[in-house]
Design a protein around this nucleic acid. Sequence first.
DNA 1: TTATGCATCTTTGTATGCAATTGACAGCTC
DNA 2: GAGCTGTCAATTGCATACAAAGATGCATAA
Lengths: 245, 245
Amino acid sequence: MSLDDLPTRIPQAGPESEPVVRRVDRASPQADKVTRAEELRLQLADEIVRGVLAPGSGLDETDIARRFSVSRTPVREALRQLVASGLVESRAHRGAVVAQPSIERLTEMFEAMAELEALCAGLAAERMPAAERQKLEAIHEELRVLSYAGNPERFHEVNERFHNAIYAGSQNGYIAEMTLATRVRVQPFRRAQFRNLGRLAKSHAEHDRVVVAIMRGDKAGAAAAMRAHIELVRGEYELYAVSHP
Amino acid sequence: MSLDDLPTRIPQAGPESEPVVRRVDRASPQADKVTRAEELRLQLADEIVRGVLAPGSGLDETDIARRFSVSRTPVREALRQLVASGLVESRAHRGAVVAQPSIERLTEMFEAMAELEALCAGLAAERMPAAERQKLEAIHEELRVLSYAGNPERFHEVNERFHNAIYAGSQNGYIAEMTLATRVRVQPFRRAQFRNLGRLAKSHAEHDRVVVAIMRGDKAGAAAAMRAHIELVRGEYELYAVSHP
DNA sequence: TTATGCATCTTTGTATGCAATTGACAGCTC
DNA sequence: GAGCTGTCAATTGCATACAAAGATGCATAA
C-alpha cells in the first residue's frame, strides 16, 4: 500500500522551509501523477477525511463524473483505489459508499492505532536524530500555546504535524505509512473531538509525557505514554459515538 | 485497505472442516465479487506472490488482456488495485511492473513484520480462546513432523497456517489484516527460504518458544520470541539477497 | 390487504476507439 | 564526433457505447 499520496503527508527530515507554494504537495521522489484518476482520488479522499462526504454516503460514478467533468473511467479507477485504501466500500453491481465500519471494527482500528503510534514513539525514542527531536519539541510548544488560545481547527492541524513528526521519527517509512493510513481511516469518525475545549489542555499534558520520554531516549516510556494518549482519545470518541448513533 | 481477498486468508475461529471444496476461498461475509477485474486481481496477485511473475517484470496491459481474453479495462482496474496493495508499482504513461523495493525498503518491511507479528503473538497470549490455542498446538505439532520429513513446500504451507492462526489469535481483524498484508508483500523475496533444509528444524525450535509463551499467557515472552523468530528469518533472507543481487 | 412475480429502469461492468504522453532514434548543427 | 532537436512509434489515459446485473414498482393472485 503506497501512501505517498494520501491527503496527509509525513514530513521528512529535510529543510523545513519550502520555497514555492504548490497546489498539491508533491515533494516525493516518486514523480507526479498528473492523471485525472489521481486528482480525483486525492480530491475524494480529502472530502471523505474532512467529513464533507459522510460515512455511508453513496458514491455514484455518473454523478461524480459529471461533477468533475470527466468520464466514468477515471472515476472508477479512483474509487477502486479508495476501496483498496479502506476509505470506500463497494460491492459488485451495487455501487460504492464511503466506508462505515461497525463499532467493533472501529474499536479494532483504534487499538491498532494505539499500538502503531506506540511503536513509532518507542522507535523514535531510540533513533530520532537530534534535529528532528528539536523540531518535535517546537511543535509541542506550538501546541501548548494553541491549547491556551483554544482554536480547535488550528490545534487539530498542528496536532497532526506532531503525530506525523513522531511517525517520521521511527525512521521506518513503511511503519510510518501504515500508521498514517490507520489514522486517516479513523479520521472521519473523530471530527468533533476537539470541540470539547477541555480536551486541548488534556491532550497537551498527555503529549508532554510522550515528548519527555522520547527526549530521554526512554523507549518503553514513550510507547506507554503514546498508547495511553491514544486510548484516551478513543474514550472521547466513544462518548461521541454513543451520543450520535 | 481491505485485505479480505488477498491470496492468503486468515482462518477464523469457526469450525475447521469445510464441507465443500471451492476454487477460491470465499467464506467471508462480504459476498463474492465475480467481476473479471476481481478475478484478474486475484490471479495476478497469486502469480506475483508465488514468484511466477518476478519482481521487476513488466505488466503490459495489452499483453495481460490478451492472455486472459478480456479487454484492457478490467486489466487496468486490477493493476490499480495491485498498486494500492503494494504488489505492483506504476508510473503514469510508463506502465506497471511487479514491485521491486529497495534493500532499505525491504529492511523496513521486515522490521514492520517483526513488530506486527510480535504484537499479534502478544495479544494472542492474552486473548486467544482455548479452542484456538489447541488448534495452534496442533499446527505446531504438524510442523514438527514436517520438519523431520524435510518437505519444504508442505512445510511452507503449514507454516503459513501457523502464522495465520496467531494473527487470528490477536482477536483484532484489522491488525491481522495489516500483518498478513505485510507478509504478502514480503513474500516474493523469501521464496527460496526453506530450501535450506536445516532451517526447518531451527524454525520449529523458534516457533516452540512462541507457542509455549502463548500457552502460558506470557504476553511479553510471546512477543519477544516472535520478534526474534522473524528477525532470524530476515537474516536468512539477507544471505539470499546478497547471493542473488 | 399482503405477498410474489414480472417488467422496466437504473447503475455498474466491459469493450473499443481515439487522444495524449513518453522514450527513442535519426538527422542536423556546432 | 558530440550534443541537441524534431519526428515517430509504442503504450497508456480517457471517453463513449454497449451489455449485464440489481433495484424498483406495479400488477395480479392468494
